[in-house]
């Protein structure tokens, strides 16, 4: 199993396509950082209009922590795509390449194969999130310096002191890993149905986009289903930047995401175990 996992990772990281995701993360974060360097002041002033009318805020508002938060917020929709690129390819890509039938003629169980695909996707996701942390947070801190962070919610202005931020980022990145692992398990599930990676990648994004829209629509009809959509809980990382941190809500979100992940994985195993490999 370990050897199988090792080779799975070897295959992922020997493939040039894998590094596109890391490149995209670097590019997006750099673009946002450049934009903030040149025009961040007016961006912040625009967002802070309501506050600035009544309070005078002095100090380095545009610091690395705030930029990191802005980047994380903007990458909300991109990172799932990058995760789907690899996880959606995991089974369908092998089927398309023709290697799936060769793998399955070897004495390994299909459960084992799914598990290895899942763990390798999780490792890839983790590395991507770590890279995101390096680019979004540490590069921003290096470029913009440290300071207290302002978090603007629709109905609240939250100030978090700089000494109180690093653990929040750590927890937020851990939460993001969980959320992205749910995406990975969805992509693997859809990947089991296809013999071509494009389908599951696009389908994963389709599901994420549609459900994200439902999660954000302020309509009573959707309010009933919202708590059960995994996309509603994917932004749970933001809870760590709230004051007080809504631990109960975050715990609930973690539970929903873990349940979805296990559900997708279980359904993949059920389906794939009975699937005729005709590719």
């Amino acid at each position: 199993m370990i050897k199988l996992l090792w080779f799975e990772l070897y295959k992922i990281f020997r493939r040039p396509r894998t590094y596109i995701s890391f490149g995209i993360v670097t590019a997006i974060t750099s673009v946002i950082q450049l934009a903030m360097l040149s025009d961040g002041e007016s961006f912040v002033n625009f967002a802070m209009q309501g506050i600035n009318e009544q309070f005078e805020i002095q100090g380095r508002i545009m610091n690395g922590y705030l930029i990191g938060y802005i980047i994380l917020q903007s990458l909300l929709i991109h990172i799932p795509l990058l995760v789907a690129l690899v996880a959606g390819d995991s089974l369908a890509g092998e089927a398309n390449l023709g290697t799936l039938r060769l793998i399955l003629t070897r004495p390994i169980s299909r459960h084992q194969l799914i598990l290895v695909k899942f763990i390798s996707s999780f490792i890839y996701t983790t590395l991507l999130i770590i890279w995101l942390a390096v680019c979004a947070l540490f590069f921003s801190l290096w470029l913009f310096g440290t300071g207290d962070m302002i978090n603007l919610k629709s109905d609240a202005f939250i100030l978090i002191l700089k000494d109180d931020l690093m653990w929040r980022y750590g927890a937020a990145f851990l939460f993001a890993m969980l959320a992205m692992t749910t995406i990975a398990s969805l992509a693997i599930f859809l990947s089991a149905f296809a013999d071509n990676a494009i389908g599951p990648i696009i389908s994963t994004m389709g599901v994420v986009v549609v459900l994200t829209i439902l999660s954000n629509l302020e309509l009573p009809l959707f309010n009933l289903v919202k708590p059960y959509l995994f996309t509603t809980h994917m932004i749970g990382w933001k809870g760590f930047f709230d004051d007080p941190v809504p631990y109960e809500a975050i715990r609930r979100s973690c539970f929903v995401l873990v349940a979805y992940t296990i559900g997708f994985l279980g359904m993949t195993m059920l389906y794939f175990n009975k699937k005729d490999i005709r590719s």
Binding site: P16, L97, G98, L102, R106
Partner: peptide, 23 residues
């Protein structure tokens, strides 16, 4: 089965090693 499809971006040795190790 059908074509002997393997990982194009890996060497013959790597492919052989991977599939040998699976057994």
């Amino acid at each position: 089965i059908e074509r002997p499809d393997m990982y194009g971006y890996l060497s013959g040795w790597d492919n052989l090693k991977i599939f040998a190790t699976l057994t």
